[in-house]
Structures are given as C-alpha cells and as structure tokens.
Design a protein around this nucleic acid. Structure first.
Lengths: 357, 357
DNA sequence: CTGTTAGCGCCTTCAG
DNA sequence: CTGAAGGCGCTAACAG
C-alpha cells in the first residue's frame, strides 16, 4: 500500500527506484556518476509517473544566477522600442525570484560599427541569453555565429532572419500585415482610384526590412484585388522636418485627387500632425504602432486606423522564452507571429498589449 | 559594515530589528503575539527596505491548499464557454505548484432553479474563491450575497454586474463593442440603406444581456452617424433549425435589397452556413467569437468579420486574479475590459487569445 | 558509483 | 510575547 502523493517528488521516485535522492537528482540533470542500471531504472519510473519537478523549489535550492542582455536600436522615449524594452523589464520583474538580470545595450541603426562594438561588449559580459532586433541582417550573422559557438541562446524580436536559427522569434509576419492593411485601406477609402504610400528614409535607407516587407504585402493585395488602383509614393526624411513639410505641401497641392494614404513605419503622426496643422480633413490615413502621438492623431480623426503589433508582449515573451529554455527546461516554439490588430478610435482604448499596463 | 543582499530576506530584517525570524513572520501575517514595540520596529524596517517576500518559498513552506470553483452555463464542446473553461484550466496548470484545485460546475441558463442549486452546492464545498458568469443578474445577487457573508472572493467573467462588487471582472464593454461593430459594418457594406440584425431567441428570451448591450451600442452608432439607415430585425430560434431555415428563406426572398447583416451572439455560423448552402454571395456579414464553425465561414467568405473577445484570456485572468489576491497578496484591478478585436480572413490566423495555444 | 547532509527563504509548531 | 527547530522539494558538496 504505497500511497503516492498528488504531486510526485524526488523522494518518491527515489524510494520506488530504490536509490537515494542524490542519484535521482543526478539523472535528472544528466550528470555523470550513475551506473547504467540505476540510470535506466530511474528514468523508467520518471516517465512512467510523468514526474514534473517543482521549479520553484529547484531555483530556491540551486541559487543560480542568469544574465540576459538585449541589444536594441538607439531610440528616444516614446518611440517604438520603448515598449519592447518595457516588456522585457516586466518579464524580469515577474521572474525575479529566479535571479535573472537584464542588461540593455543600444546601437545606432545607421552605423554598422556601433552594432559590431556592442556585439563585442556583450560577449565580454558572458551572458546566459541574448535578445536582439536583427534590423541589420548582414551584421547580425557575424554576431549570432559567435553566440552559437559559445552555445548562448538568442532571441529575435520584431523581425526575423530564420536562417540564423534563433531560439525563438517574436514579431509580426510583416508581408501579411501589409496585405491586411491594404484591404482595410481600400475599404476605408471606398476603393479609391489612387493611393499614396508615405515612406520614411533615413541616411538614404529604409529604416527596416519591416517597412519593406509590409509594402510588398500591400502591393501583393493591390495586384490581386485592385490592379487598376494607382500607387503613388512620397519619400520623407524624418531628420529634416522642414524639408518634410515642403515635400508634403507640394504633394497635397499637386495631388488633390488623392484622398487616401498609408505608411508602413511607426511615424504616421508626421503626416497626421501635418493634416491637422493644415486643416486637411477627409484624407483617409492608416499607420502602424500605438505611439502616443499616433494615438493622439487617431483620437483627433487625422488617422483612421492604426495597426498594432504588441511590442511589449514581444519583449516580455522574449525574456520568458529564455527562462523557459534555461530555467524551466520547457520547449519553446521557434516562430511566434504576433497578432495583426486593427485599432480605430472606437476600440483603441481597450487595446491590450499584454503586460504593458 | 552590514552588507545587505540584493534581495532582502526575513532573516535580514530580523537582524536589523533585533528580533527573531519568527517575530518578523508574525507581523508579516498580522498574527497576534507581538509586542507593540516590536511590531512597530519591524514594520518600519519592512517598508524602509521595501521587503518583497519570496512567494515561492512561502508557498513551499506553508503547503496551503486552495479550492476554486467556477460556475458556467451548460454548453456543448466547441461553444463559446469551452474557451473560457480552457483558460481557467491553463491558469490552474500554471499555478499548480501553489496547490490550487479547480472544480467546474454548470447550470442551465434557461432554468433558474438550476442556478440556485449549483450555488448551494458550491457553498457546501467551502471554496476559497469562485468564478462565474453572471448571465442571470437577478439570481446572481442571491448567490454573491452569501459569498460575501463568508468572505469568499468571486470573479465575474464575460459580463459584469458591478453593483454586486466582485473582486474583479473580465469581459468586453459590450455596448462599445456593438458601437465599433456598427462602424465596421457600415464601412464593409459601403453605407447601405438597410441593414439587418439577426437575433437569437431561446425560450422566449435573449440568451444574454451581452447580446442586448451590443445591440444598444450598435443602435447608438447608427443614430449618431447614419440615422437614415433602416434597421431590420430577424429573430431566430437556435433550437429549431428547420424553423430557422424557413425564416431565413422568407427573409432573403422578401428583402433582396438588403445586403448587409450583423449578429450579436456567437452563432453567426447559422447565417453563414445558410448563405453557403443557398449559394448567396455578396451578402456582407459580421458576427462575434471565433467558434470553429464561425472561422470556417470566415475563411469561405460567408462571414466578412468576426469580433473576438478573448474568452481564454478571460478565464485565465480570472483564476490569476484569485491567486494574486489570495496567495500573492497583490492588488487586483476590479474592472478589466478585454480588447475588441476585428478579425478578417487576412489576419485571423494570427489572432492571439492569450494562453489558448 | 552512491548515500547523506546542509542549506535556499519561509512557515509553523513547540518550549520557554 | 518570543526564539529555536524542523520541514516544504530540491541542489550540491562531501564522504565513503
């Protein structure tokens, strides 16, 4: 009459295998110093009883420390990356009893060398896990190769380079996101004859492959459903605001017939605020991400829809994945697409970017 | 040189207050048997150092058991409530190391007495916390009064009766949800002259106040923005399918000019499948909730939009709140509106009902 | 190769 | 009113 408790403990399986808890612990952690016979017997019982360790007790006893470091583009407060960072910090708080620490580093998106330097710096810290946004795919490989050598797991946030084999990726499927945006834009604009894409160019380059992929998806939808709709482009240069102003002045004067536009970066407020400033109503506008200024535009009616991608949830999940992998020994899904969420003034107040609040 | 560790422990504050850990533990839990002097000294240091207990160690040591019970409407597999229940079970798994158990009970939404009986049954179990969907507001008060007497916290899921003062509520703001749905419907239908509301009547009553409130919000939007659009109603009776068929036959024959419809309950598939069966294209349709059959209709183009309310997240959060309140002693927010999410065939695959997968 | 033991931070008796 | 001691499930060091 060996009554087993609801939750099986090491002690229980030790008794059943007729060994000591020490031995069970050794096989659980794949350590050496166990005879083949004992190991087999223990493993047998382990899976027969579907033993689930109490990770809290484990963490308590082991007292192991974990250092995670994340590498993000430099950004200003209120920017998109702020929320990603917030999510990571939330996760660190949540798992603080497991002794994890997060060190955050930044690089200049338009300066390759700063990415390289940051990478070196990180390796010196000998982290247990790394999170990064692979906004510069060419440079990322050189860094992740070294991480792989050292067997340090790494997580991609926001955009993916699946060939680099991260432990996990969290971000939107950007082409599909643009595809969806196209449908909404055409519905919003009541099937306009022309539509404009506002682009943002920095240092002569599109800021991210995200922007590029969304546009691709957008064009795919248009091709499939509205091949006759003319797609116009207007390039803006966020670092020279007066120049942007002039470009928009010219554009809106020369194209009064265009009444619908979209932007695939997170700065739709640049256009929204321009519309407000110039009292241009009746222009339908769609953008991405819930930056404060974007939301203001939405509430004032200058922006009609915002598409959200839950940056905070991305950051949180990234850290959580590292914990699952390193601490809880749970399997983590490699490709995690975030929801593509449409926000209008009527539902934006209930938007839930998990863990942001 | 008293170096304090990063994470303050009971031992540390005991030393600083010049008492034993036992005494600190006593003041932490507000137990009797501590002199006023000691209590004050300990409390002082406690908040000065912002002591945060290690809840995992605490749970490990205390070995306390918690029983939660939830009361939901009877439902079939695949129904809306299935997902709510799933979320609760996920949460129980997540917190299983804290020794929580969940007992699920059901009542017949159309039989008051079954709600009463279930309530009695629950009280007998002496649970530590209760979760329920107050779909029958009149009956709910009688039950929650008794819970309040016994100081058993309770959570409302799906719909709210804030006057009954639950520990927390998780669900959509239903009128706003209908308001948003109206905007989307009008956009989708390209400002139709007429629109139809498909209602579902059971035993002579609308299944839920949810359905009613959404319709109210819908009508509010229409009043404000399209007062000239005619709103037609068609009542269906889910329990008699052939009758429904006849009603729809008649409706679509008599109203060929109506090309846009909406339903505020979770069974839009009834109309969607009818449209498919009768090969009626070009009818624009919006509904609620991601039941499998609804999603099929969405993918086949018979339904254009579904509005989701994250039932699994609701259930999960409900159980989580009880844990936060009872075990972690964290404050829980009372009113938690769920996001109002628009799903179309282009983005439904990425819909994230937290903890469902 | 294996068992024993002393903690991890906290809670709960039990003496005093 | 207070302190000391044993134990929650697990880890890791130490004997043997």
């Amino acid at each position: 009459m060996n009554k087993l408790p609801e939750r099986i403990r090491i002690k229980d399986i030790a008794r059943l295998a007729d060994v000591s808890v020490g031995t069970v612990d050794r096989v659980l952690h794949g350590r050496t110093g166990v005879s083949e016979a004992s190991r087999k017997r223990v493993e047998e019982i382990l899976k027969q009883l579907d033993y689930q360790p109490n990770m809290y007790a484990s963490a308590l006893a082991s007292n192991k420390k974990y250092l995670f470091v994340c590498l993000l583009p430099q950004h200003k407060e209120g920017d998109y990356w702020t929320d990603v960072e917030l999510g990571m910090k939330r996760a660190v708080e949540t798992f603080s009893d497991f002794h994890i620490t997060l060190s955050v580093m930044y690089y200049d998106q338009y300066e390759y060398s700063s990415f390289i330097n940051a990478g070196e710096e990180i390796l010196k810290q000998e982290p247990d896990g790394v999170l990064l946004a692979p906004t510069i795919p060419e440079m990322t490989a050189r860094f992740t190769d070294k991480l792989q050598e050292r067997e340090i797991p790494y997580i991609f946030i926001d955009s993916n380079v699946s060939s680099l084999n991260p432990l996990a990726f969290f971000g939107q499927k950007s082409d599909q996101s643009g595809y969806f945006a196209a449908r909404m834009a055409m519905m919003l604009g009541e099937c306009p004859k022309e539509i404009v894409i506002f682009r943002q160019i920095n240092e002569g380059r599109l800021g991210s492959n995200q922007q590029e992929n969304r546009e691709k998806g957008f064009r795919k939808y248009m091709q499939e459903h509205f091949p006759d709709c003319k797609i116009v482009e207007l390039n803006l240069y966020a670092k020279r605001p007066d120049e942007d102003e002039a470009l928009m002045n010219r554009f809106f004067q020369e194209n009064p017939q265009i009444t619908c536009g979209i932007t695939f970066n997170s700065k739709v407020y640049i256009i929204g605020e321009y519309l407000i400033g110039h009292n241009l109503k009746n222009f339908k506008l769609i953008g991405y991400d819930l930056l404060r200024r974007n939301v203001s535009c939405l509430k004032e009616g200058a922006v009609d829809f915002l598409i959200a991608q839950q940056p905070t949830a991305q950051g949180y999940s990234g850290v959580e994945s590292l914990c699952n992998h390193l601490i809880f020994k749970k399997e983590v899904k490699q490709c995690n697409y975030m929801p593509i969420t449409l926000l209008a003034v009527e539902n934006v107040d209930f938007y839930l970017d998990a863990h942001k609040k």
